[in-house]
């Protein structure tokens, strides 16, 4: 079942440079995404490609000077700010990336209970603690007493007790050892198996490929390709977009083979008629520089590229 659908989503910020000069920057310019219940969808991209903003845009917690274009539908209905306020914590929950997202002066058990949507938060919290292998005394600990792993479990437990249908994990695995990554991914898999939709925002393509069902690749504020995770295999023959393929082939496991073109991060500020990647793509043609590619349906996914 289609839980969330983002269409042509853009996020821009207005800021003042100097006294009266206004500057508009658009870190997210063309984002399309569909999340299904029971599936993990990973949004993969380099840092600065606008991934975290996507999470904040879905939750409606962007800064006040942000402007959102396009549309996000939740279970078929357009997400308005009022609707987002109602759904936050109820239907949609965030799993943040680090311990700084926990209130430093509140005991961890209380923080989990605050997220619980239940008539008996304590019971639910204890159940979540057992589930995520947290000792009973961790309840009384403050965030500064938690190890990084415990903090992650606390945040996973918060998502669990909220009972939200859509779980958005923002960079849940940075700098983690392989077994911790595997454990974290297993939590999300369990939630997906229970019928939740999981949106995984990450720059770690490797863990996304092993843990997710679908992968959306982002660059320069655009989703360039949406494809099943299983297509990332071999030398990337089933990957359509040159950037996705370059990303895949540059992984250590794939012999570090240098990408066919050096896809540097493209500044989100520059505006041109064509594909923002045209300047650094080897396959780019004259058409790429003049016309922004649209979404093209391909087998089990879509791609935004003229050349592929």
């Amino acid at each position: 079942m289609n839980i969330l659908q983002a269409e042509n989503l853009s996020i821009s910020f207005t800021r003042y440079t100097g006294w009266l000069r206004r500057e508009v920057i658009m870190p997210v310019r063309q984002l399309d995404l569909t999340l299904e219940a029971g599936e993990i969808t990973a949004v993969v991209g380099a840092s600065g490609s606008g991934k975290s903003l996507l999470a904040h845009a879905i939750l409606g917690i962007l800064p006040v000077n942000a402007k959102v274009g396009g549309s996000i539908r939740y279970r078929g209905e357009i997400l308005t700010p009022a609707k987002q306020a109602r759904l936050r914590g109820e239907d949609i929950i965030l799993v943040p990336q680090s311990v700084t997202y926990l209130d430093p002066l509140m005991r961890s058990g209380t923080q989990v209970r605050l997220a619980a949507r239940s008539s008996d938060p304590l019971k639910l919290q204890r159940e979540a603690f057992r589930r995520y292998r947290l000792e009973r005394e961790v309840e009384l600990m403050y965030p500064h007493q938690l190890s990084g792993g415990m903090a992650r479990r606390i945040m996973a437990a918060s998502a669990f007790v909220s009972g939200a249908r859509l779980i958005i994990a923002d960079e849940p695995t940075p700098g983690m050892q392989a077994e911790d990554v595997a454990e974290t991914m297993r939590w999300f898999r369990e939630l997906a198996d229970q019928g939740h939709a999981v949106l995984l925002i990450t720059h770690d393509l490797e863990s996304a490929v092993t843990g997710a069902d679908k992968i959306a690749v982002m660059n320069a504020g655009m989703t360039v390709e949406w494809l099943p995770a299983s297509h990332f295999s071999g030398r990337g023959e089933m990957i359509r977009h040159p950037y996705s393929r370059a990303l895949w082939n540059s992984l250590p496991a794939n012999n570090f083979s240098l990408p066919q073109a050096s896809f540097r991060k493209v500044s989100g500020g520059q505006e041109g008629p064509g594909c923002p990647l045209a300047a650094c793509c080897e396959l780019a043609t004259a058409r790429c520089r003049e016309e922004l590619p649209g979404m093209r349906e391909v087998m089990k996914g879509w791609v935004r590229c003229h050349a592929s």
Partner: peptide, 25 residues
């Protein structure tokens, strides 16, 4: 701070947000 962003993402707002995290800190 990050923890207020997270609290808002968990649905806390207004007076509840102030009492739970603002006042405390």
């Amino acid at each position: 701070s990050d923890y207020i962003l997270y609290a808002r993402a968990k649905g806390e707002r207004g007076w509840q947000l102030y009492r739970n995290h603002g006042l405390r800190n």
